[in-house]
């Protein structure tokens, strides 16, 4: 009588695939993020250019600018995944069939893919426009991946909270900044090290711990965040 049931990951994957299918039709999230990232990159490179920064401060300033661009691009696009459910009114149907953990896992996976798309385009562009020398690409990839995981999970969880509140966009920035700062600061530190050619163990360890803590907290609190 009981039909075979799909597991947690298959269900979360269904959510992610559905978002990708929807995004494929309209491309609003991807479009707005890429447009934002392009604008920010153009502004930064125009303002500081490759020679606008003093040589000794370049490593840390470039790293900070890169993560500011990534953070704001993410803040523009990642909350869409859950806000859209409320705009179309489909949040109710989704609540009727799937628990919060499945929804948040699926949306976080989609947001991580979105983040990878932004990073894959904006990091090389940033490096070219600002003539930013990266001594260790492997270290940079590690930082961007670890930072991206935390950024996607925290953004997804927080957008579930703000999705049904007023003034969502401003509110998202307000609630996400203090929680993402402990991710951005070690990410910037590790990026500086990567550009100077080394794997910075201490900040990378912090990133791993942060990602783990955020994942567990988001999983446990998903029901409270998403269901009434």
């Amino acid at each position: 009588m009981t039909p075979t049931r799909l597991g947690f990951w298959s269900r979360a994957w269904a959510v992610c695939a559905k978002d990708a299918a929807q995004e494929g039709k309209r491309r609003i999230a991807l479009g707005s993020i890429l447009f934002f990232a392009a604008t920010a990159l153009a502004l930064v490179s125009y303002a500081v250019g490759p020679f606008g920064l003093p040589a000794d401060a370049r490593a840390s300033l470039d790293a900070a600018l890169l993560w500011i661009i990534l953070f704001f691009s993410a803040a523009t696009g990642l909350p869409r995944a859950l806000v859209r459910e409320e705009e179309t009114g489909t949040g109710l149907a989704l609540r009727a069939v799937a628990p919060g953990a499945v929804v948040i896992a699926g949306k976080a996976a989609f947001n991580f893919l979105l983040f990878l798309a932004i990073a894959a385009l904006s990091v090389p562009t940033f490096a070219v426009l600002l003539e930013w020398r990266i001594e260790s690409s492997a270290a940079l990839v590690a930082v961007v991946l670890l930072g991206g995981v935390g950024l996607s999970i925290v953004s997804t969880f927080l957008s579930a909270l703000v999705a049904r509140a007023g003034q969502r966009n401003v509110l998202f920035l307000v609630v996400s900044f203090p929680l993402l700062a402990p991710l951005l600061l070690p990410a910037i530190a590790a990026t500086v090290a990567a550009s100077q050619g080394s794997f910075a163990a201490a900040p990378l360890r912090v990133l791993v711990a942060y990602d783990g803590a955020a994942t567990c907290a988001a999983y446990l609190l998903a029901g409270a965040a998403w269901e009434d």
Partner: peptide
């Protein structure tokens, strides 16, 4: 409900803010 979820989520990430990052 939303405020409680935010407070608990923050409580998990707050130690990073107060203890870990200032030490790095």
């Amino acid at each position: 409900r939303i405020a409680a979820a935010y407070a608990l989520f923050s409580a998990v990430l707050m130690p990073f803010l107060v203890f870990v990052v200032p030490r790095v």
